[in-house]
Nucleic acid binder design. Structure first.
Lengths: 156, 156
DNA sequence: GTTGTGCATTGATGTACATCAAGAAACGAA
DNA sequence: TTCGTTTCTTGATGTACATCAATGCACAAC
């Protein structure tokens, strides 16, 4: 376990890496994402202050996600071993809840609803990342998000 | 913690319930699902033998999912308390991995790819539930799944 | 047997969102 | 400042999948 500072843009983990770490964000903003076979990015998670971010892959298997740094950040890097996991069952449980909501959302909500839910759930993220990244998190294109936002603004 | 037997069709948890349990399946098959505002079911998880199934909601909040029984089953019912969770960090970690794959899939794969992945990952489920439920799990309609299957069969 | 009920399939049509392309606006580097 | 990138927006068109409706099929109840 050690504290490190990382610059915006720095890559902390890439798909296929072994022995990936768990990162706990003290300040700044990280994200994890996958890249599909067409080369398109899909953001899996944002991690602002006090969040943890990691690939859920077991230590001995190549991981699925990229993790990089969206703002200059200070992070604590932990080993992904059994002890680390055992000590954090509550955090894991919370993570599960977030993922559950996310999946239900992806399956049952249209773009507009997903965006509105995102706004209320993660208001602080909105000002800190470009819209195309929010689109990527929501599973839509930046163009679609732009039109959703327009519709919301007209509605008022 | 107690062992109970449940009949096909029996409902074990409904959206809004408090104090929901964790179910460990000894034999049979359970599922969890949500119902959207149009009344459409979205299957969140299948749980055959040796799987656990639960709502990720904390004990003191109303839960999001329905859980019911797709085959006559024998299940172990656990309290969703801290000890239970602490004792199962490995299971939680595995669950996280499954959810991670699921989300990446929902965001980056078309129906055909999602179905083929499902076949290889959960071959035993296919024979045990109607196709419309597999469609619901994949986030598509039964009609769309039927066409995907036709295309796969023609391709050979 | 008949009648029902749920499921799978197929076709016709609709729609939410993607893709492509172009222009405008914001941002960072020199 | 200016130049070059990146981001956002808007329009035109395309497409994967949904929806709706009809048909056939299996299986259970009677």
């Amino acid at each position: 376990m050690k504290r490190i500072t990382v610059k915006k843009g720095q890559l902390l983990q890439r798909t296929g890496d072994l022995n990936s770490k768990i990162f706990q964000v003290e300040s700044g903003l990280l994200r994890s994402y996958s890249i599909d076979k067409k080369g398109k990015e899909h953001i899996y998670q944002f991690a602002p202050e006090n969040w943890i971010i990691a690939d859920a892959t077991p230590i001995d298997e190549p991981c699925d996600l990229f993790i990089d740094c969206l703002e200059d950040s200070i992070i604590i890097q932990l080993e992904k071993d059994f002890d680390t996991l055992s000590n954090a069952p509550l955090k894991l449980a919370k993570r599960l809840k977030v993922l559950q909501k996310r999946i239900v959302m992806l399956m049952s909500s249209v773009a507009l609803e997903r965006y509105e839910h995102f706004i209320t759930t993660y208001p602080s993220i909105i000002q800190r990342v470009p819209q195309r990244m929010i689109a990527s998190y929501l599973g839509i294109t930046p163009e679609a998000l732009s039109r959703v936002r327009k519709e919301i603004s007209l509605r008022k």
